[in-house]
């Protein structure tokens, strides 16, 4: 096994150690200490940037949510206000209509009762006229048929009895 037997050779161990020291030293100082931190810094910067951007996006999202919420509240409020004014206007209109209707009703009732009173008055006067005419006619009829003269008051009473049952 040369790995062991070559230790016997004068130059083997010294050369191996010297060159591994030199090359690994180069790798450690130039690559490990020189390049690696810069690469890690790049990766860290990128990670930080991604995290920051994500946080900013989250904040923007939250702000948008808040904005939407306030918009929604505002629109709810204005919708409620609009609804209220519509109901108010409706109520007012209904009340006005009621009032007007009541007034018209009252007028109509007045007119109706006046008309009824007129009708009643006309009827009673007509009835009175009919009575007197009928009494006269009955008196005349009796006089013609039987030649008996009847007192106007008797004829009136008899006609009244027939007319009013």
């Amino acid at each position: 096994m040369p790995q062991i037997s070559q230790f016997a050779e004068n130059w083997y161990a010294a050369s191996q150690i010297f060159w591994v020291l030199l090359t690994f030293g180069f790798v450690f100082f130039v690559i490990g200490r020189g390049m690696l931190p810069k690469i890690e810094a790049t990766v860290d910067a990128r990670d930080r940037k991604v995290a920051d951007d994500l946080a900013a996006a989250k904040a923007a999202h939250a702000a948008a949510d808040a904005l939407e919420e306030s918009y929604r509240q505002q629109s709810d409020a204005s919708r409620a206000a609009a609804q209220k004014s519509v109901t108010d206007a409706k109520d007012k209109a209904a009340k006005d209509a009621e009032k007007r209707l009541a007034k018209i009703d009252a007028e109509l009732a007045d007119k109706l009762s006046a008309a009824e009173a007129d009708v009643r008055a006309a009827r009673s006067s007509a009835m009175a006229e009919i009575e007197s005419v009928a009494a006269e006619a009955a008196g005349d009829l009796v006089a013609k048929l039987s030649g008996v003269k009847i007192a106007a008051a008797d004829a009136k009473a008899a006609v009244k009895a027939v007319l009013h049952g």
Partner: peptide, 10 residues
């Protein structure tokens, strides 16, 4: 008294 050489390994 050791010799240092450039070797295939190096």
């Amino acid at each position: 008294n050791h010799e240092v050489a450039f070797t295939t390994s190096a």
